[in-house]
Design a protein around this nucleic acid. Structure first.
Lengths: 264, 264
DNA sequence: CGTCCTATTGAAATTCTTCAACACTCGTGG
DNA sequence: CCACGAGTGTTGAAGAATTTCAATAGGACG
C-alpha cells in the first residue's frame, strides 16, 4: 500500500518558503513565513484565519511533493489530512462500472482539497501534474473550523465557485460542438493556470496540464477528436502548437469567440 | 414589470399548514406550526435553527404560490427574499448568446433557493411546475446565519450536495448515450420527486416535472431524440407511458441498469 | 536501437440532429 | 357541441458530427 505513492515530505518548520517564486513584497511580521507565500499569491482558506490561528495551524502543516498520476485520495486518507494545493493541478474523475470516465473538475492552487464534515463519493483525485501540497491534520482543521466561521464561509465560497464551474461545464458538455469544447478547455486553462496574470490582452503561452486522453475525458470526446480539433484551431489561426504540451494563444478574445461559435 | 409574475401571496400567520399532505405525526409544541410541515417532510435549512429562532423567522415568512414558467429570480429580487421550496420543481438554466440552452440543475422541496453572501451569475431560475414557496427577507436570514453556524453549515451541505449532483450529471452528459441519458433522467426524477417513498422496490409511477423540450435541455439532446428514446425504453419494457407526463417504472433496478448500459 | 506511450491522420461506421410531416390535447369561441 | 388553433409530442428520412478501427509517426528512456 505504502508503496503506491511516493512523496517527499518535509516538515514545514524546516522550510521557509525558499522555493517560492511569484512572490510579492509582503512583510507582515505577524503571519508565519511558511504561509506568506500562499497569502501572497491569492489567499486560500487560510486567509480567513487570524495571525495567531495561522501560527497554530502552521506548526502542524506539512509540505509534500507528488509525482504526476499519484492518487491523492489515498494520500489524504493515509495521512488523515486536508491540504491546500501550492502548485500543480489535480483532476477529479468519475468512472462508470464499464470503465467510461469523465473528469468532473480540476483544482488549481490555492484550492483546498477535501471535505470537512462531509462525504466525498465515487470520485478519484489524481495529480494531473507534479504537485506540491500544504497539508494539515483533519482534526486540527475541523477544530479551527468550529472556532472560525469565517474559515467555514471561505470553504462554502469555494464550494459555490466549484458549483458554478461545474454548471458552466454542463453547458459546455451538453450544448457545444467538439470545436467549441476544445476552445473552451483552452480558455479554461488560460484563465486558471496563472491567476496572477491579467488574462485579457496580448499573446500568451499556456502549458497544458493534461494529456490528450485526459482532455478527452474532460470534454466527453475521444482523443482523436481532440487532436483533430486542435489542428483545426491551429489552421484557423486561433492557436499555435509549440509542442504537445505548450500552446500559444495570440488572442484570448478570438479564442473566447471560438468557444461560443463554430462558424467564423 | 409587476405584471410579469402573478403570485397569490398569503401571510404565513394566517396559514396553518392546512394544505399539507404527507405529514407525519409530529407534535412538537415548541416549533411554530407553519414550520412543522417542512420539518415533517425532511428538514431544509430551517432544521438547524433553535425553536426560538424558528419562531422569530416564522413571524416574517411569507408563503406564495406561482404558476408554471414563472421567473423566480425576478420574484427573489422583487421581494428581496430567499425561500424554501415547499412543493414543485425549479429549473436552473444557462443560455448561450446564440440561444442554446442547458438546464444545469433542478431543485425540489425542501431545497433552499438563493445564495446568501454570494453572487449567482448568468443563471435563470424558473418554476418548472406550479410552485409553493416559503420566503423570508434576505436581511433577516443573513442576520440569523451570522448567529447560527449550524445553519450556515446546512447551506454549505446543500451546496456540496448540489455540487455532487452537478458532477454526476457531468458524467451523464459527457459519457452516456442518448438512451442512457433518458434513463438517467427518469431515475433522477424517481429518486427526487418524492423523498418520502422508499424507492428501491416495486412498481412506481412518476409525474414528469418537465416537458420534452426541457428534458432535452437537461440532457443536451433534441426533443425528437427524447421522444424516440422514450418509445425505445417503452418497447424494451423498462417503462410504461401512461400519458405524456406520467410514466410507470415496473422495476427501478432495471431502469438503473438501463442508465448505465445500452446493450441488453 | 527497440519499446512503450502519446499523438496524429484517414476511412468507414454509428449516433444523433435536422428537416418535414403529422397526431394529440386542451381551451376558446363560434 | 363542434371547430379551430396553438402548443406539445411522435415518427420518418436524409444529413452531419463524432466515434471507431486501423495505420503511422514522434519522443523518452533503458
Amino acid at each position: 500500500m505504502a508503496l503506491l505513492f511516493r512523496a517527499t515530505t518535509e516538515n514545514a518548520s524546516r522550510h521557509r518558503g525558499n522555493q517560492v517564486t511569484n512572490r510579492k513584497n509582503i512583510h507582515n511580521s505577524e503571519v508565519p513565513l511558511v504561509c506568506q507565500a500562499c497569502e501572497a499569491r491569492h489567499g486560500g482558506v487560510c486567509a480567513a484565519l487570524t495571525p495567531s490561528q495561522l501560527t497554530r495551524l502552521s506548526e502542524h502543516t506539512t509540505k509534500s511533493a507528488h509525482e504526476r498520476d499519484t492518487d491523492m485520495s489515498r494520500h489524504a486518507e493515509q495521512t488523515d489530512s486536508y491540504a491546500n494545493i501550492l502548485s500543480g493541478v489535480v483532476k477529479l474523475t468519475k468512472t462508470m462500472p464499464d470503465g467510461r470516465q469523465q473528469i468532473v473538475g480540476l483544482q488549481f492552487a490555492p484550492d483546498f482539497m477535501g471535505r470537512p464534515f462531509a462525504r466525498e463519493d465515487g470520485l478519484t483525485m489524481e495529480a494531473a501534474t507534479p504537485l506540491r501540497l500544504c497539508s494539515f491534520p483533519k482534526s486540527l482543521l475541523e477544530e479551527m473550523l468550529d472556532e472560525s466561521p469565517q474559515m467555514e464561509r471561505r470553504l462554502h465560497d469555494q464550494a459555490l465557485v466549484e458549483l458554478d464551474e461545474a454548471r458552466d461545464w454542463l453547458l459546455t458538455l451538453g450544448r457545444k460542438s467538439a470545436r467549441e469544447k476544445v476552445a473552451s478547455f483552452l480558455l479554461l486553462i488560460a484563465t486558471h493556470i496563472d491567476p496572477e496574470r491579467p488574462v485579457e490582452k496580448g499573446s500568451i503561452v499556456i502549458e497544458l496540464p493534461l494529456k490528450r486522453a485526459d482532455i478527452a475525458d474532460y470534454l466527453g470526446l475521444t482523443t482523436e477528436t481532440i487532436s483533430r480539433q486542435l489542428t483545426h484551431l491551429r489552421k484557423a489561426g486561433i492557436i499555435e502548437i509549440e509542442d504537445r504540451r505548450r500552446i500559444t494563444i495570440p488572442s484570448i478574445s478570438a479564442l473566447r469567440h471560438a468557444s461560443e461559435t463554430d462558424r467564423g
